[in-house]
Amino acid sequence: MAKDNRGNSKPSSPFSFLKKLRRYPATAIGFIIVFLFILIAIIGPSIAPYPYTEQKLSERLAPPSEEHIFGTDQYGRDIFSRILVGSRDVLLVAGSGTAMAVMLGLLLGLFSGYRGGLLDEIVMRLMDVILSIPPLLLAMVILFSLGPSRLNVIIVVGFLYIPMVARVVRSVVLDLKTRQFVEAARMRGEKSGYILFREIFPNVLPHLAVEASMRFSYAIFLVASLGFLGLGVQPPSPDWGLMVGEARTWFHQARWILLFPAGAIALLVVGVGFMSDGLRRMLLPGGVSDV
C-alpha cells in the first residue's frame, strides 16, 4: 500500500532539522562534537603523527610543543597520537556495549511488556534487583571475576544497562498496548508478531533512540571510570580513562598529561549528553527532559 505520496504533509526536510538545531545551540554543539569524534575515530589512527606505543625516554614528560602538540607522557609517548587512537577505543567499547544493552533490553522490554503476567513480573523483579546495585560497583565486581579486557568491558556495559533499557521499553509498550489501534488490531485477529513488530515497535523507536543516546553517554562515563580505576582496558592501550589514571602520579610535574585525556573525555561525554537531550526534544516533544 505504502506509496510515497502524502498529500499536503508537513515538510520534514533536513532543512527543518537544521532550523530546529539553531533554536537549541547546545544541541547543535552536541551533534557537532559527536560528529567530530566519530570522524577522528575513523581517520584518527591514520593521521596520528607517531605510533601510539612508541616510547622515547629521552623526551619523557615533554610539555606541548610543535613536535608534540599535547606533549608526551611518562614514557615519552606522544599524547596527541594516543588520544587520536584512543578515540576509536572509547567509541567502540562504549558503542558496542550500548548496542548490546539496547538490543537485549529492547527484546526483553518488548516481550515482557507485551506478554505481561508472571513472566513480566519475574523479569522485572530481576531487573529491579540488578538496578539496586550501583552500576559502577557491579561493573567492578564483574570485571574482577571476568578479568579486565576490552571484550569484558563491552560485556559488562551491555549487561549493566539492559535493565534500564528494558524498563523504558516496557513502560512504552504497556502504554501502547492499551491504545485503541492495538485493540483494533486484536479485534481483526492480527498475530502477536504483527502487533508487536508492526503496530507497537515503530512507536517505540523514538523512545529507544533517546534512551540509546543517553545510555551511550553513561557508557562512555562508565568505561572511562573503569579505565581510571585500572579495572577496564589494560595498558599500554590508549584508553583515555586509563591515561588519566596513570597520569595521576606525574600530575604534579606535568599537568598536560592529565588535562588532555581528561578534556577529551569531558568533551565527548558532554557532547553526547547534549545530543541526547536534543534528540529527546525533537523526537519526544511531549515530555520535559527527565533523566
Binding site: F228, G245, F251, L259, G273
Partner: peptide
Amino acid sequence: SMAFVGLPEFVTGLLLIA
C-alpha cells in the same frame, strides 16, 4: 547542569585539585 552530569568524577576531582 548537563555538563556536570556528564563529567566523570575523576575529571572534576583532578581539576579541582589542580
